[in-house]
Every structure is written in C-alpha cells, then in structure tokens.
C-alpha cells in the first residue's frame, strides 16, 4: 500500500491534535479540534470507510465543535483563558513506558492493508457475499447497521435520547 497520499494527512492529523493540546486559548483549541476531526474524516475516506467519514465530518467536526462552542460562549469571556500547571510525575513516567510497550507489540499486528489480516478473513467475507441476497441493500455497511444489527442501532438511539434528557435536566434555566 502506498503511503504518499496518506502520510501528509497523518502529519496534519498529529499537527492539529498537538496544536489543540498546546493552544493557550480555549476557543482556538476547540476550532483546531474541529479541523482535526475533518482531517480524520479525510483519512477514513482514503481508507475506504466512506460512511464513517461522513459521520465523522457531520457529527465529529460539526456537532462536537458546536457543543464545545456553546459551552464556551455560555461561560462568557472570563472562562476562556487559563493558566499553566506542571505535569504530574506519574504521567511523565507511565506514558512513555506505555508507548514503548505498544510499539513493542507493533510487530505482531497485521500490516496496513493486509488482505489476510485476521479481521478480514473470519466472518467479514460472509457478510460481504451474502448481504445483497439477504437484505437487497447495495451498501453493505447500511445492510449490517440496519438489518443484521437493527436492535443494536435501536439501543444506540436510546443512548442518544438519554443523553439529550440528561443535557436538558442539567441546563434548564430554573435548575435552582
């Protein structure tokens, strides 16, 4: 698999994520996070996951940014700036160790784009070959989401509904 198109996107991804972390102003951090989500959506479109890219562009880059901005604007200008603090020692020690362990495990993982990767040879060919005959849907992601896993998707909407109720209870005007 050639990386010539993907590597600049991955670098932009890391750059925007790092900028969102080090930005001194919360507003710019939130907007950088939105552009990070958008680059993530581009990477996913390149990997062939168009449905995930759509959802990330709409829900991740759009809705999440709007949520962050609403919180910041509700708070007024006073809350937007912040001060620095020294990092805890445990994080400085534990996180590089975790990085080393994860890199050590990299050798056992399938390579990027390997058609014989374990995830691609078990049940996934069955879904791909049978989905149209069983569900009459040409988009196989839709077939799995709406037919094979319809109950799962129903419960997902219940989760979204619950979070909507929770937000309403937290943010109604007369909460005193």
């Amino acid at each position: 698999m050639t990386y010539s198109f993907e590597l600049p996107l991955l670098l932009l991804l890391l750059l925007t994520a790092g900028a969102a972390i080090v930005a001194k102003d919360l507003l710019s951090a939130v907007l950088l996070l939105g552009s990070y989500s958008f680059f993530l959506a581009l990477v996913w479109a390149w990997l062939g996951a168009v449905d995930v890219a759509f959802v990330e562009a709409v829900v991740g880059a759009g809705l999440a940014t709007v949520f962050f901005l609403l919180t910041l604007f509700n708070a007024g200008r006073g809350g937007i700036r912040f001060r620095r603090a020294s990092p805890p020692l445990a994080a400085v020690v534990v996180l590089p160790v975790l990085a080393g362990l994860l890199l050590y495990a990299a050798n056992d993982l399938p390579q990027l784009g390997d058609p014989q990767a374990p995830a691609s040879v078990h049940v996934s060919p069955e879904y791909l070959t049978r989905a149209y005959a069983e569900t009459q849907t040409t988009n196989i992601v839709t077939a799995v989401l709406m037919d094979y896993r319809a109950l799962d998707t129903l419960i997902e909407t219940v989760v979204v509904f619950t979070s909507g109720i929770a937000c309403w209870l937290l943010l109604r005007r007369d909460s005193e």
Binding site: A49, V52, V59, A119, V123, S124, Y127, L128, E156, V160
Partner: peptide, 16 residues
C-alpha cells in the same frame, strides 16, 4: 465493512 459499523455506533455514542 464490520469495523465501519462498529465505529459508526461508537462515534455517535462518543458525541452523546
């Protein structure tokens, strides 16, 4: 397609 379906659910739950 199976990881795509899993992650679609995960993204929506993440934003919720």
């Amino acid at each position: 397609p199976l990881p795509h379906v899993l992650t679609l659910t995960a993204i929506v739950v993440q934003v919720a």
